[in-house]
Computed example of a mutant assay.
Amino acid sequence: MSSDRRTGPTRVEVALRTAQRVQRSLPRPSAALRAAEFPLRAPTVPGGVEPLPEEPTLGAAYETSWARSPVARLGRMAIQEGAIRPLIRLVADPERRGYDRLVGLEGPAIFAANHLSHIDAGLLLSSLPEPWRRRAFAGAAADYFFDTRIKATLSALALNAVPIDRAKVGRRSATLAAQLIEDGWSMVIFPEGGRSPDGWAQPFRAGAAFLSVRTGVPVVPVHLEGTGRILPKGTSTLVPGPTRVTFGTPLRPSDDEDMRDLATRIEAAVGALADEVAGDWYTARRRAHAGSSPSLSGPDARAWRRAWALGDRRSHRRRRREPWPLRRTG
């Protein structure tokens, strides 16, 4: 005859009692945590359901609106005046000319320059006269300046940079830049889309012209000289040396002009400024009026010949005397 007497708790009962004791010993969550309506962990995706792709937060998708808040603008002014401008003065010793051509220019403008070095953005932003300097942003390559969180944050804070997708025409980048211009911000942009590999300019893209046609604001051509010797493409070593920033006459799109024609005019205007720097003002103006300014992209020749021609321009530039009326103004 079998007996129903139990000699002790089963293993299951022992495990349950142990779990209850552990649970009672744990601290209770706060009332605020118990009342929270959001999940404490990311929800799981049921089996067989394709998860949604994660939204990108870097590159062209990086959000820069915070960099134009009052606090960020105050911090940027401190960075630019306390660090960037002294560094540019020490490393580049800039000579700035052509401010007289901006007399009468009111409202925002698009400052379009040739591109030789990573210091170009800091040099041009620090060379803008008031009131444009305090209310300017830079178009920066999304795949380089916004590829990591640290670089994106520093670029947005120090330069008020916005990401520009140079691999394709990005609607988000173009819309953001146009909105900022329409809100009264001026833009610094390098239409080549990247730094020169040999000191001569690359063909200008239509980004600056597109924004000018869309917003109706003028484009100010700017020529930068000397930055390629300070920090050329492919190196990371600063070699201090003199530079020159020359501002040109603002260009406005005509009623029947499309962005391609305006882009051609912008490139020609920067080329005419380069001719001024290499020669004398009067001769360069005559050539510009006749449409015969030397090509900004240099001779169509082998690499050694292009380097030779660039060296000739530099030697002539050092020998010549500054022409009136574009002598240094600040």
Rank of each mutant, 00 (worst) to 15 (best):
E192M: 02
A83Q: 06
R73I: 09
H115A: 01
L125T: 14
E322N: 06
A19K: 07
Y62E: 04
G298F: 14
R306T: 10
P53H: 02
S30R: 03
T264P: 11
R313N: 09
A178K: 04
R321W: 13
G279T: 15
R6V: 14
P129D: 08
V277C: 05
L326G: 01
A15I: 12
P232Y: 05
R21A: 11
G207K: 03
A303Y: 13
R17H: 05
R195Y: 00
S196N: 06
D143E: 11
D261H: 03
P294C: 07
G184S: 07
P9E: 07
S297C: 12
W185E: 01
A272D: 09
T329R: 05
E192Q: 08
F210H: 11
P51K: 03
A269G: 06
R317E: 05
D312F: 01
S254T: 14
R306I: 13
T18M: 04
E54Q: 09
G199S: 05
A209I: 13
P294R: 02
R6Y: 02
S315W: 04
M77P: 05
V220I: 15
A152K: 00
G207E: 05
P218M: 07
L159E: 00
L16K: 09
V217L: 08
L40E: 01
I84V: 15
P250F: 08
V49M: 07
N114I: 13
P56C: 12
L33M: 12
Q179Y: 00
G194V: 01
V45A: 00
L262R: 05
A19P: 06
D256A: 02
D300E: 15
L159F: 08
R286V: 15
G47R: 05
S292G: 00
L326C: 10
R305H: 12
E322G: 02
R96L: 15
R85P: 14
P108W: 10
A31M: 07
D143M: 13
R28D: 02
G311A: 02
R135T: 14
P232L: 08
L251T: 03
P221R: 11
R96Y: 12
W66A: 01
P253A: 10
K151E: 04
E267Y: 03
W281Y: 12
R34K: 09
G241H: 04
M259Y: 06
G8F: 10
R320Q: 10
L116R: 11
L52D: 03
L159K: 01
P221M: 13
R302A: 10
T264V: 13
H316T: 12
G298I: 15
G170C: 14
R149Q: 03
R305T: 13
R313D: 09
E95W: 03
E257M: 07
A177D: 02
G207C: 03
R85S: 12
P232V: 11
R285H: 10
D256Y: 00
